[in-house]
């Protein structure tokens, strides 16, 4: 009973906030409520990203999406060029941020669009954007607060079942 009541209240609150936002924000006709980010999952499981929740909590799309959704950019550096923006065909992070690790050559070489150099790769784009904001907002910042570690991850970090045993640790080498 308590559970259903809670769910109902949460749903109602969500609905009200959504209605408010729809009145305020012109560029949010349709967006996914939930996104599973798992292209890079290896040491950690993919992240089930509550996109809807973050839409509600942030001031505008540009906080994460720069100018691609059509809202004015937040970053003053980007704002020098991007003034009157139209929504773009591609808006998701992975459309622009490469899943390949960035090197100095790729940072400065490939991208022909001036000032779009030194662009973080996809893993960094996620972490810099998410973690940076989480730190500022006092949201969870631990690695496993967002994504659970896999067995491969445990082995990589020598943690969990692969944790160093005190005796071998001190006298092993």
């Amino acid at each position: 009973m308590v559970n259903t009541g809670k769910k109902f209240m949460a749903g109602l609150a969500g609905l009200i906030i959504c209605c408010l936002l729809m009145m305020n924000c012109y560029a949010m006709e349709s967006y996914p409520e939930e996104i599973e980010i798992d292209v890079l999952a290896e040491l950690y499981e993919g992240v089930v990203f509550d996109h809807g929740l973050h839409v509600m909590m942030t001031e505008g799309c540009a906080v994460c999406h720069h100018h691609t959704t059509g809202t004015p950019v937040v970053d003053s550096y980007c704002a020098k060029c991007h003034t009157n923006e139209e929504p773009m065909a591609t808006v998701s992070c992975k459309d622009c941020h490469s899943s390949e690790p960035v090197t100095a050559g790729s940072v400065r070489g490939k991208d022909t669009v001036l000032f779009h150099d030194d662009k973080p790769d996809l893993k960094a784009a996620y972490h810099l954007s998410c973690l940076g904001c989480h730190q500022d907002m006092g949201a969870p910042v631990g690695c496993q607060d967002c994504h659970a570690r896999t067995e491969a991850g445990d082995a990589f970090f020598h943690s969990g079942q692969f944790a160093p045993t005190g005796s071998t640790g001190s006298s092993g080498h």
């Binding site: 960035v102 090197t103 100095a104 050559g105 940072v107 973080p120 960094a124 972490h127 810099l128």
Partner: peptide
């Protein structure tokens, strides 16, 4: 590195 703290490349370009 998850944060791309480091960029690898030619020293001159870095």
């Amino acid at each position: 590195c998850p944060q791309q703290v480091m960029v690898f490349g030619k020293r001159k370009e870095l």
